[in-house]
Design a protein around this nucleic acid. Structure first.
Lengths: 262, 262
DNA sequence: CAAATAGTGTCTTTTAGACATTATTAA
DNA sequence: TTAATAATGTCTAAAAGACACTATTTG
């Protein structure tokens, strides 16, 4: 049985009371992408009492909009604030949130709290899918106030997931890959100063294909979104690469107006 | 007082019973664009008992997804089936659906039905915004099983609207204008056979700017999405234009993969 | 000097953009 | 023949795409 000092217990008690502060039938889920070591990863959480891994997500207060809820949930589960959030799709297939791992019976058994069979927690839910990009190293995966396990998974090597979360991640990757052709990327995924090979490998990783180094840098420089700094990055045993940074103004303009990146 | 034979009465009776068939706190709204006479119009509905004009929209059954609901509502309100539907944004600002025109009191007064003050109909609702494109002439605006007034409004000359529907239309236009640069358009908005000036004026109308006739046709032809037919369209007093049709395969491919249209 | 990786320039092809004259029909 | 509008081709500029050699550092 669940440890009554665990945050899940607190949460359950909270939600299973007749609570009217949250929207019924609608949640948000965040696909938090982190880039690290030439791999695109996604942040998953696992409650010790619910077997499958899940996307960080949650309920929406009636006093907040979905963006605020997504931000709140992201901070709550990951400790990161001010994430760039992109709403990409709503998932609403009937029965999408049915799971043997989240039923009145299973929760009652774990928590000792009696839960009505037709409680709104177990009703049909649509969920608003958001994705977000962050630098891997910014996330302290131990700062998690729900006492859940938190882990980065490579997008090509995901564990079994709750509900339709595999589908949500698939669509998030699709949306991300589509958007990279129309908007600049990297601001949230690279350190302040980065090298040309670093940003090129980021693009290659997200798109899953090789890009010509000369044409790539020419394009970014001609758009004005990156700028060469005087400095180089010290490396071992080979020519040191120059450091670059984003030109905030050009970057923001490209975000607003859109670009065409082949 | 409301005429009890009016469909609204029936609807009210239906929804004000404790009905558990619909998602709480979530609706859909359709921005139905119709192209006609070099103008981009949007279909609005008005219930004789609720003053402001509204977008066609509605509740979502727990047994359907939002796309199905949007399609169902579109058919119900306009008589058109098989509309191309594009989900573009969710609107969820707290208080967005507060209006003096839709309260327990106003409805009770109209209908004679007593409605609980905290009935879910008057609770906070998020709404999924869809837009759709259709040929003006396909819509029989009299085929409306809710006995509402239905009217096409020019997007630059909208009446006062219920809730945040002006905002929803604004965002739909923005999404449509963005998408026209990345996906082909016209299949739903033009007759099967159309002329080059017709499709060019369609683009110009949506984008709100002039386009060079020679460069425009060169681009569409080189993408392969339109094809010249042998025939011409008879006109009055000037050279008759050739007729073209869409190449379905190339059009679908362009929809799937995206294009870049400057 | 070898190994490792970064930096950079040029040519070709494709696409975009600007621009004006001729063609066809009906009245 | 005039009025109305459609059709069409060419030149130039910009961008994309392909491609290979030189530079710098450490061990």
């Amino acid at each position: 049985m669940i440890d009554k000092t665990h945050k899940l217990f607190e949460q359950l008690e909270f939600h299973t009371q007749e609570n009217n502060d949250f929207l019924k039938n609608l949640t948000i889920d965040n696909v938090i992408f982190g880039y690290h070591n030439k791999e695109l990863k996604v942040l998953l959480v696992k409650n010790p009492y619910i077997t499958p891994w899940m996307l960080p997500g949650g309920y929406i207060k009636k006093t907040e909009d979905v963006e605020t809820a997504a931000d709140r949930v992201a901070i709550q589960r990951t400790g990161i604030s001010n994430l760039y959030l992109k709403q990409f799709k709503i998932f609403s297939k009937p029965g999408r949130n049915k799971s043997v791992f989240f039923t009145p019976e299973s929760l009652a058994k774990l928590s000792g709290v009696t839960i009505k069979k037709n409680h709104w927690l177990f009703d049909q839910f649509a969920t608003v899918g958001f994705y977000t990009l962050t630098e891997f190293s910014k996330v302290d995966i131990n700062k998690n106030d729900l006492e859940e396990e938190v882990k980065w998974y490579d997008i090509n090597d995901l564990p079994t997931l709750l509900y339709d979360h595999d589908q949500i991640i698939y669509e998030a990757v699709k949306a991300l890959r589509h958007n990279i052709y129309h908007f600049p990327i990297g601001y949230e995924l690279l350190p302040e100063k980065f090298t040309l090979p670093e940003i090129r490998i980021l693009y290659q990783t997200i798109l899953g294909r090789e890009m010509d180094d000369r044409n790539f840098s020419r394009k970014l420089l001609s758009l004005g979104i990156i700028e060469k700094l005087g400095e180089t990055k010290s490396t071992q045993g080979h020519r040191p690469p120059y450091l670059y940074s984003f030109n905030k103004i050009a970057y923001q303009k490209a975000l607003d107006q859109g670009i065409f990146f082949s």
